[in-house]
Write a protein that binds this DNA or RNA. Structure first.
Length: 521
RNA sequence: GGCCCUAUCGUCUAGUGGCCUAGGACGGAGCCCUCUCAAGGCUCAAACCCGGGUUCGAAUCCCGGUAGGGUCACCA
């Protein structure tokens, strides 16, 4: 039988990296075994069922290169593709209701007329006795035909009839053997009481199991938080007359020792905001994007991470190929990944290590690829025009070569390219204060400009030689000369090699910018 | 609180009874290189949660603590 795995996000409006890691494990497992990876949208909670809440999730997976064999269409229109469509739970409720009716008929489920007050008082009592409250509903032992009759007359929540005195046992691929007595499992609700429109919506565990059986899912790889409701789901599979799939509960993703949640994440730092603004973001645009934080895929995309790097980092967190490898090509991961090798302890998300992985991926790219990846950022920053002129492309290529490993994110390209692409220098006030407003700097710049005026050819090696000779002649440390010249022509203290910078800028611009800078000393 | 899960440097991990005076990586510290900043090279600090067993021998097996986490809905 073919391996079939699945990931079932609920539409929240953003793609969470913890979810991505779980999805990745499913995807890898399917790809390794030549099976199918299925995407299903868990939107049984009607309030959340909106296309705009699904789109970011689909876009995120698409960007990451995690493709699905069956599921919603990429446009998030609500359409699906695949033999078991639709793949939106919100569109499948009839199936759940029909399945629930069958369970009532077979005596595996029943309507529960217990009042809320009754349940509360029983729960209180159990609590006072320091015992777990295991709910059993009113019609548990009523004959099926009578239950069906009562339900038709007065529909309420439908509960699964959990068998007594049995054991649910399953072999979890990550956790090992799990054993739970049915006497500790409450009769779970599988169908809600009718809502205002008379619809009886299925609950998570039930909808999931009906779908899993319907889709022929063979491996359920999901987050550890679902471990506790797995026994219930196995009971539902059995009541339905279906074979339960195999389970693998992978540990959660933490940050600072706690489950990574959107709330307690830092907002964008001032550096990040400055970076996005340099890339052309307006305050207005930033305000509308509270989904941009390090728990979401969108954040990494906007900052210019390479999808493969994020994937590499996320897989490596909780799984290792061997004792030494950190950067692991996707094909190697696919060829070696197995759920049984996933660590049992939760993994702490470490953005510094992710950035390192990212920089390792970036340095493997050619200058051409760096330019290609940075283009959308440069366009947004209005530094280049849309059909890219050949001359500009050639310049960008040279910038990419000169900037080399300094570019860690595609958005970094904007910083290094700005001084060369903009007509006027934007002087960083602090740089000016530190490097230009010092005694003697003006005269020195003037004298160095005179050297450059007649220099032939105006290329990096010649400029370098002139720079060294000039520094020695006037008795100034090379680093100090670098500082003032650099700030004069770029406005910043940081940048790639000064000779390369001057050469790419061209003699005319260099001389006029130094002239401007002299006025600021 | 009941039930369940987990436990190696700050972090991610290797390790499945002797190869472990515990290996690698990120991060940190220092030095070198150097036109700023990166990158690179070299070096250093840094861990088997605690207590009992089992064994000739334990990070590895067993028991008990401790700590952290998950879960207890007509949420997913």
């Amino acid at each position: 039988m073919s391996i079939r795995t699945r990931f079932a996000p609920s539409p929240t409006g953003y793609l969470h990296i913890g979810g991505v890691r779980t999805a990745l494990f499913n995807w890898l497992y399917a790809r390794r075994h030549g099976g199918q990876f299925i995407l299903r949208i868990d939107d049984t909670d009607a309030a959340r069922n909106r296309a705009e809440a699904v789109k970011p999730i689909l876009d995120g997976f698409d960007w990451l290169g995690i493709d699905w064999d069956e599921g919603p269409t990429k446009d998030a229109s609500g359409d699906s593709f695949g033999p078991h469509k639709p793949y939106y739970q919100g569109q499948r409720n009839d199936k759940y209701v029909a399945a629930a009716m069958k369970l009532i008929e077979a005596g595996h489920a029943y309507p529960d007329y217990t009042t809320q007050a009754e349940q509360d008082s029983r729960r209180d009592l159990a609590c006072r006795l320091k015992k777990a409250y295991v709910h059993r509903g009113s019609n548990r032992d009523v004959p099926p035909a009578e239950n069906l009759r009562q339900y038709k007359e007065r529909p309420v929540a439908v509960l699964l009839r959990v068998p007594e005195g049995e054991k649910v046992v399953f072999e979890d691929h990550v956790r090992g053997r799990v054993e739970v007595g049915t006497d500790t499992i409450r009769d779970p609700a599988i169908l809600r009481a009718p809502n205002a429109d008379g619809v009886c919506g299925a609950l998570y565990s039930f909808a999931t199991v009906v779908d899993e059986a319907d889709f022929g899912i063979t491996q359920v790889i999901r987050a550890e938080e679902h471990l506790a409701n797995t026994p219930v789901q196995i009971l539902i599979f059995k009541a339905l007359g279906a074979t339960p799939p195999e389970f693998a509960h992978v540990p959660l993703l933490y940050r600072n020792g706690k489950k990574i949640s959107k709330r307690d994440l830092p907002p964008l730092s001032s550096e990040e905001i400055a970076k996005l603004k340099a890339c052309g973001w307006t305050d207005e645009e930033l305000k509308g994007r509270d989904d941009l934080n390090l728990a979401t895929v969108a954040y990494y995309r906007e900052l210019g991470y390479i999808p493969a790097a994020l994937v590499n980092y996320l897989v490596r967190l909780g799984w290792a190929l061997n004792a030494t490898d950190e950067i692991i090509p996707l094909e190697t991961v696919i060829a070696n990944f197995d759920t049984k090798d996933v660590t049992k302890a939760p993994g702490n998300f470490d953005e510094k290590k992710l950035l390192w992985v990212q920089s390792e991926y970036m340095r493997k790219l050619s200058a051409d690829e760096k330019v290609a990846g940075s283009l959308s950022y440069l366009r947004r920053a209005k530094l280049v025009s849309d059909p890219l002129p050949d001359a500009t492309r050639a310049l960008l290529l040279k910038i990419a070569e000169a900037a080399a490993d300094r570019i860690k994110l595609f958005s970094d390209f904007v910083f290094y390219a700005s001084p060369l692409l903009k007509d006027a220098v934007e002087y960083n006030p602090k740089a000016v204060a530190d490097k230009l407003k010092k005694p003697g700097v003006g005269d020195r710049l003037k004298a160095f400009a005179d050297e450059l005026r007649t220099l032939e050819p105006f290329d990096p090696p010649t400029i370098m030689a002139s720079f060294t000779a000039f520094a020695a002649k006037v008795g100034v440390k090379p680093r100090d000369l670098d500082g003032s010249v650099r700030v004069a022509v770029t406005g910043e203290t940081i940048g790639f090699g000064l000779p390369e910078t001057l050469a790419l800028l061209g003699r005319d611009k260099v001389l006029s910018r130094i002239d401007t800078a002299i006025g600021m000393t």
